[in-house]
Amino acid sequence: MSLVRVAYFMGLIICLPLFIRTWGVLFNAETPINAALVIGEAVKLSWLLQAVALLISAPWFIRDFAIKQALIAHLMLIMAPVPFFVVAWLADAITLMMMLKLVASLVMVSLFCVFMILPFNRLWFFKYMPINLDMPLCLMAAVFIWKTSDLWLRWLT
């Protein structure tokens, strides 16, 4: 399976449980519910999961594929939930500016991650280590984003 297919598959897999969860909340609500709030929360969670997926997948992608391919794959991962973002925008859950900021921030995460890992892996110290350290570092970055997600999302939304 090509890298782009894997990335798209990952993107869809992230969307599926979020969609089911959101739909469950909206459909099973016995009293009138603010759909925009529920969908907005799902969009935020989707952004968080995507950012984590980008960080975790970057070392694998770079190790076995060219940078261009890795970046295209990340773009695919970012694009997978775009139809859901558009639905969220139509539902007034996010503004157009918010949507652009969310997508742009994911692109930034991807670029930052890819271009930081490359020189890092080429350093002689890390090159001859028995294990690759890029993966644990990306994991730490993912944990950092997860733990500080409130701040990021407050800034982005």
Binding site: M1, S2, V4, R5, Y8, F9, L12, I72, M76, M79, A80, P81, V82, P83, F85, V86, V87, L90
Partner: peptide, 26 residues
């Protein structure tokens, strides 16, 4: 999307799919 991951012969199809879906929603 899941079907396209398995059967699409070109990568371009995968990029077009979210864009077309977003367009339909709009």
């Amino acid at each position: 999307g899941f079907i396209a991951v398995g059967v699409a012969s070109r990568q371009r199809t995968l990029f077009i799919l979210p864009l077309i879906s977003a367009g339909i929603a709009l």
